[in-house]
Design a protein around this nucleic acid. Structure first.
Lengths: 226, 226
DNA sequence: TCCAAAGCAAGAGCACCGCTCTCTTTTTTG
DNA sequence: CAAAAAAGAGAGCGGTGCTCTTGCTTTGGA
């Protein structure tokens, strides 16, 4: 068993943690593409082949880091979700937390929202951590709907079936129009963050904080919040 | 001189083109990270070291491919920008062209709008090609403003100075409110496309075409188009 | 016209990478 | 206490970007 029985089991946990720690350091410093198992091993003073006792491949290590990144971002969003009561303010606050986390952890952000690492497809285990930010946004809108703080956004007729299916899937208690608008706003939020982070706003947007605040405020109104 | 004088100069152009062609093939097939100079050379039947006579480094080759990708996407957008007269329809059509290009060229899209290749910073030469889609969107809004087809969107007071600076920079003939909303919508468009392309919509949005059409339609209204 | 200069191809080589296999040592377990 | 399982180390394979040296060919000026 891999329980915390012997000293060996404890050592395994420690070494695994040390590997992830060093890998995380390299990820933050140089980015995912320059993360090398050999360099991690070197830094830890072990043979490069020994790493493979803990992570079967580089991709498995990356998967762990991806999950950590999703959880770290999710926590950042969850931590501020109740610091306001007004729906729009709550929405904007959470969006700002997402942006703040992204600016503080650019390589981690690129790892999870940039181009998927080549040939790499994320396993199912990443799905729950990846959903946390979305769930926070859903929660805000849900509370607003309960408190009558939502004007239903318009919905094209052709989108009706998809909106109903989507609402049933992710938030059964939300009106289809709101659910559809929410998903769109969710994607658009990461468009704003990504453009700033990846340099697309260079020489275009200078004073980025108020710009972002205003844009996500409009996003909130697009979902129906007020 | 590097003019088309001798047979040597002509050969250089041909070899350069052949390298880019093969590299483009590999990029489309496997993605940027698996593009290897050695593999390109192998495929072309030349020594790997010979490539360096044409491209000083792998990054220089990638820069060329980035420019090509921007231009290809820009052309796709420009090609459809006049197929409608109604401002909202024009906007949606161009957005659909962007999405269509992205779905048809996922690796090229990832190259230019995914995480920037680590350590790599795009040189100034990429700026004009990178601007083409934005210019198309600006053109649509400009025409709409002239034709009185625009309701000015709201603008937070704190954003006023940035909006004026931004408008002066990218579209002096556009009202600041419109210019600011336009830039935000521009970024949000790529959020929608990226989320679909990079799998974030898996198990969330099923019927993606109407969803996208509706979302970018709302985007157009956010800019003031109607 | 001839000859030096410049351009180009090729091969060997360096330092790195992910990953595998084998061998030895250590710890756990029946 | 012995057998089995786990872990570490080292060598090695095939791959990468990139450099350097060595010849060969085209080019342009005296």
């Amino acid at each position: 068993m891999s329980s915390a029985h012997g000293a060996r089991a404890r050592a395994r946990i420690e070494v695994t943690a040390a590997i992830k720690e060093e890998a995380s350091r390299q990820l933050a410093a140089e980015g995912a593409a320059k993360l090398s198992l050999r360099a991690v091993a070197r830094e830890l003073g072990m043979a490069s082949s020994a790493i493979y006792r803990y992570f079967p491949s580089r991709d498995d290590l990356l998967t762990d880091l991806i999950i950590d990144a999703y959880n770290s971002l999710g926590e950042a969003a969850e931590a501020v979700q109740h610091t306001a009561t007004d729906p729009v303010r709550r929405w904007v606050t959470v969006c700002e937390a997402v942006r703040g986390w992204a600016l503080a952890h650019p390589h981690e952000y690129a790892l999870i929202y940039g181009s998927p690492v080549p040939g790499y497809t994320a396993p199912q285990t990443t799905v729950p951590p990846a959903s946390r930010v979305g769930l926070v946004l859903i929660g805000i809108v849900r509370d607003a709907v309960k408190g009558r703080g939502v004007t239903f956004p318009p919905l094209a007729a052709e989108l009706r079936p998809e909106a109903e299916r989507l609402a049933a899937d992710i938030a059964p208690d939300l009106p289809p129009q709101v659910a559809a608008a929410l998903v769109a706003a969710w994607a658009q939020l990461f468009g704003l963050v990504g453009f700033e982070l990846f340099g697309q706003f260079n020489r275009v947007v200078e004073d980025r904080e108020p710009f972002f605040r205003h844009a996500v405020g409009q996003l909130a109104r697009g979902v129906g919040l007020r």
